[in-house]
Computed example of a mutant assay.
Amino acid sequence: MSQKIRWGILGVAAINDRLMEPFHTAKTSDIRAIASRTLPKAKDYAAKNNIPVAYGSYEELLQDPNIDAVYIPLPNHMHDEWTRKAADHGKHVLVEKPMTVHAKEAEALVAYCRSKNVRLMDGFMWPHHPRTHKLRKFLDGGAIGDVKKVVAAFTFNLEGLPTGNIRMQPQAGGGGLLDVGCYTTYAIRWWMKAEPVKVFARAAYVNDVDVGMSGVWTFADGRTATFDCGFTHPLRTWVEIVGTEGVVRVPNMWIPDDQAVFQVVRQKGLFDQSIEEIATPGENQMVHMLDDFAAAVFEKREPYPNPDEAVKTGKVLDALAKSAREGREVEVG
């Protein structure tokens, strides 16, 4: 293993673009190769993004002995197959979220990668942002009392809902729940520090994929959480954490700006309130994600967050999908 992680990328998906600068600037990262199903596409992307080596197949990249780890931004239904193939070649894997389409697949995949002694992490960036760690410490210190409820939203307008878009294709694991609902699901679990026992969801469908979903979670201690996700509302990317003594609002939860603030709202009297803003400026969550993954590889330990988190999130996603399809409350697990 070199002093830096020597990265390869499977695919030339548009989602790669936001990671190119972090791959080139992270202190632990050395982006070495990219693969596409056609060599001209790989060469073109490599030339535009200063990547030294281009391959005309994913298999060729996995056979490269100078690659330590791969980033997999392929469609959801391809995550399991190519993560396993990467593990077979001894490559550590950062795979786009959700890790797999269903929880049972994720559970088996996590076990498979452990059996191959390779590190596996899904590509949620926000857990790696220092704001997230600051807020966790803030809440655990009792700053707003006991957390009683979390409300989360991640929506954006996918104009026209075009069936040619991978997000709109059921066979590819499309739909708003897996695309952006995985964010709200993970965040609710994260801030509640508990797993729901039951969920109820309603959804609208186009081309047999959910394009808008909202719902309610119920926890064993009686607490609740609510969420809203999908492709039919303007961009909303926030989380609200309700405590017994105050409320935390996190704007731009998933894609923070340079200030990365969260707001602390406290009631004063009956209808007045104070609002305090706490910032965590100048941080790049993508760089932190790459560096955190590299630390797990170098230290030969599980990454943080642990890949089992993807399994737990997957169980909630499965239950939400079932609830929305069947129109009833569903137990989780």
Score class of each variant (00 low, 15 high):
177 L>I: 14
313 T>H: 04
38 T>Y: 13
333 G>V: 12
211 V>C: 09
233 H>P: 06
293 F>R: 03
174 G>I: 02
65 P>T: 08
278 I>N: 03
268 K>M: 13
235 L>F: 12
243 G>E: 08
287 V>A: 03
136 R>N: 12
142 G>D: 11
86 A>H: 01
226 T>Y: 05
196 P>N: 10
277 E>Y: 09
213 M>T: 04
109 L>N: 02
256 P>K: 07
252 N>M: 11
206 V>D: 12
39 L>M: 10
313 T>W: 03
69 A>K: 02
97 K>H: 08
276 E>I: 11
123 G>H: 06
85 K>L: 12
189 R>W: 05
112 Y>C: 05
125 M>T: 08
61 L>I: 08
232 T>W: 03
34 I>M: 03
182 C>M: 07
219 F>V: 09
257 D>I: 09
97 K>V: 00
128 H>M: 05
271 F>I: 09
140 D>I: 11
38 T>L: 14
14 A>T: 14
23 F>T: 01
158 L>I: 06
114 R>C: 08
86 A>K: 00
119 R>P: 00
182 C>D: 04
87 A>M: 05
299 E>P: 06
97 K>R: 11
332 V>L: 04
194 A>S: 15
148 K>M: 15
275 I>D: 11
97 K>T: 02
297 V>F: 06
75 P>A: 14
171 Q>C: 11
136 R>H: 13
163 T>A: 15
315 K>M: 09
154 F>E: 01
50 N>Y: 14
107 E>R: 14
231 F>Q: 01
148 K>E: 15
59 E>Q: 13
232 T>A: 10
162 P>K: 10
294 A>D: 03
312 K>W: 07
87 A>S: 09
33 A>T: 04
83 T>I: 10
196 P>L: 10
232 T>E: 08
314 G>Q: 02
114 R>K: 14
160 G>F: 08
259 Q>V: 12
167 R>C: 05
66 N>S: 12
261 V>N: 05
68 D>Y: 03
18 R>Y: 13
70 V>D: 00
254 W>Q: 03
120 L>P: 02
15 I>L: 11
215 G>N: 05
124 F>S: 00
216 V>D: 15
87 A>Y: 02
200 F>A: 12
172 A>D: 08
54 A>R: 01
40 P>E: 10
19 L>R: 02
122 D>P: 07
58 Y>K: 05
83 T>G: 04
63 Q>D: 13
246 G>T: 09
272 D>V: 10
86 A>R: 00
150 V>W: 01
92 H>D: 06
60 E>K: 08
217 W>R: 01
145 G>R: 14
315 K>E: 05
201 A>T: 06
65 P>I: 08
235 L>N: 11
295 A>D: 07
330 V>Y: 04
108 A>G: 15
181 G>L: 03
252 N>I: 04
145 G>A: 14
150 V>R: 00
278 I>L: 11
302 E>Q: 15
265 V>M: 12
206 V>C: 11
271 F>C: 11
63 Q>N: 14
53 V>T: 10
147 V>S: 02
134 K>A: 11
76 N>L: 09
306 N>I: 07
183 Y>Q: 07
150 V>C: 07
113 C>P: 02
248 V>R: 00
42 A>I: 03
325 R>Y: 13
295 A>K: 12
16 N>S: 09
277 E>S: 13
286 M>D: 06
94 L>N: 02
260 A>F: 01
232 T>Y: 04
318 D>G: 07
99 M>S: 03
263 Q>T: 09
239 V>F: 02
235 L>G: 08
190 W>P: 00
